[in-house]
Design a binder for these strands. Structure first.
Lengths: 356, 356
DNA sequence: ATGAAAGCGCTAACAT
DNA sequence: ATGTTAGCGCTTTCAT
């Protein structure tokens, strides 16, 4: 077995409680004794067993981080920042993945609950009621989702949508398409609302199409729709979809940005390496990870600060946007009625969350 | 406080040891009693505290996964697969990041050691001695590194290098460059050895250049060297470097694959979205994650099976390779002597590991 | 088949 | 300033 507090006590010739104090309440033990204890502990390679300690203190010094899909390029920077921040505050982090399954999500929260001081729940798929229920068992901080009464960190995608539309309008676009995300996504709803508003304010046409898979495939599949709509610019739900769209447009012989401009959202690493390099609304994912961890750990000190933080986004202009092509007569085969998704904005049910 | 075994015992009208048995040794308790216990536990929302259980059983049902950089596209698929496999075997996983710092690495292993049943150490930066030392404190499985006497999972990059060189030779290339990875990388050493051998076997020239940063920047920086070398094809240490190289070559007016063919290694998501799409040696990262977890958890049952698993790679031919351009007189300004890195292969010190 | 008691490694009153 | 005692939630002898 590993070396325990008792081994150290014996070797140092003191009682175990003195050893305990030397570590967790150094001021309560004589400087000399403490030095002696610390040095023998060092020699023996003793490290306090945090799990045993947690049994009595109630604080595990662990946190949980639950995401939909670790390999989705949106998450790694968030995970990285959260882990880093947690470790800076002397906590370890469990990372788990739900695969978008709400049942797995709930199960994970419960399974982890006894072993952590709190959980950062990213882009939850559970409905509000279930989340509130879980929050009663273990401190929760939500990312990419807002639930009344619970602390959360969200990206201001609404502001980002405004930035994107305004930029396109400034470039001369008058006919813009929006590719929404998955049905029931909080993020997508926000984005749609703000984009609609920004378009109206500028007096340009906005064609809303969706729901779409928040993936490359989703973007590829939407290409035909976009061409049919006659839009000269497109704002997508996320970078993945934007990249797929560019690929899809390319297959149809439509050039980006010469014929159609495309703006993604998230500023994932992908947008930096594709050609054309992707113009995108950067969501501060790393900052979100740090903020969520901070909120979770602060929560221990002062309670009743159920903050709902919203992080500003930023438009990164790269090569997938430009002025629209010189006016030509509208496509002959176009005139497809603007496909408007009736369900995405409706939110009949309070359930739903952002996929990325 | 949460509901404990005692609450269940009281509610079910049995002794706590009966409740304990109902969960961890069901056959020892009468079917009726068990049913009663289980149902009241369900009602009360009882979940055994694993940390408390671990105190006595010695098995935490947690594992650690330590990587260099969570956001490096090489790792997320590995982390994802490891987490999934661990959960399938009813284990939770701590994910931590070293930032390539050997001291952090050692510290992390020790800090985690009491809370886990074992640790998967990816691309370790520590020297063999230190790793062996740590392996005495907690079961370790190495990924991307081989240390005598310790279980490990490695990718057969040597085989992959052979695949790549052979493919280039088959396409007609006679003058190939290899861009090596960071100094002291086990992976890079293997790759170099195998590439040299394959080139010799085919009687083609191989120019070795390095060490290089295993990043886009590293690739960009190497572009000039490559052009100067007169090589018509390049094998890089990893995808990131390949993508950077393509960018760098583009800036110099050299086209890929028309003028120079490029092959990456890893098959990260990036290579699938860049243009030209990247030809690459796919390393089975997901399989490696799964295998490492399996080895770690098997280790509990039967010991003394210090397996060293090597996973086969596969060449994915996409658009960054083609036949070399029709013979033209060598570049006038070329004739730069093939830059050969003397240190990379030397391995004066047993330290080192693969960055990605 | 179940209960009683001891103890995993540690901290937290409570003594002294 | 240090030792004593009790106990965190649980499993595991040992009885019965």
């Amino acid at each position: 077995m590993a070396v325990t507090i008792r081994d150290v006590a014996r070797a140092a010739g003191v009682h175990i409680s003195t050893v305990s104090r030397a570590f967790s309440a150094p001021h309560l033990v004589h400087a000399e004794t403490r030095a002696k204890v610390l040095s023998t502990a060092e020699e023996l390679g003793y490290r306090p067993n945090r799990a045993a300690r947690a049994l009595i203190t109630g604080r595990t010094h662990n946190i949980g981080l639950i995401v939909a899909d670790i390999a989705n390029p949106f998450f790694p920077p968030l995970i990285k920042a959260a882990e880093s921040q947690a470790r800076m505050r002397d906590h370890h982090v469990f990372v788990a993945e739900t695969d978008e399954d709400p049942l797995v999500e709930a199960e994970l929260v419960q399974a982890l609950s006894k072993q952590v001081d709190g959980i950062v729940l990213c882009s939850p798929r559970l409905n509000n009621g279930a989340i509130e229920q879980l929050a009663r068992e273990v401190p929760l901080v939500l990312v990419n989702r807002r639930v009344p009464g619970l602390p959360s960190v969200t990206m201001d995608v609404a502001q980002g949508a405004g930035l994107a539309i305004d930029h396109l309008v400034a470039d001369g676009h008058r006919d813009i398409a929006l590719l929404t995300g998955p049905r029931g996504s909080w993020t997508s709803r926000e984005q749609r609302r703000a984009a609609t508003q920004a378009a109206a304010r500028s007096g340009v046409r906005l064609t809303v199409t969706g729901p779409n898979q928040p993936t490359e495939e989703g973007g590829i599949a939407a290409a035909e729709h976009v061409v049919g709509s006659g839009a000269t610019a497109v704002l997508t739900y996320n970078d993945l979809m934007a990249i797929g769209l560019i690929e899809g447009l390319d297959r149809l012989g439509t050039r980006v940005p010469a014929d159609v401009s495309v703006i993604g959202v998230d500023d994932t690493i992908l947008g930096r390496v594709t050609r054309p390099r992707l113009t995108t609304v950067a969501t501060p994912t790393a900052a979100a990870g740090r903020a969520a961890v901070d909120m979770l750990l602060q929560h221990g000190d002062d309670r009743r600060t159920t903050a709902q933080v919203s992080l500003q986004t930023e438009l990164i202009v790269r090569d997938s946007t430009s002025a629209p092509p010189p006016r030509t007569p509208p496509h002959g085969h176009a005139a497809a009625p603007p496909a408007v998704d009736g369900t995405d904005g409706a939110a009949a049910e309070p359930r739903g969350g952002a996929a990325t």
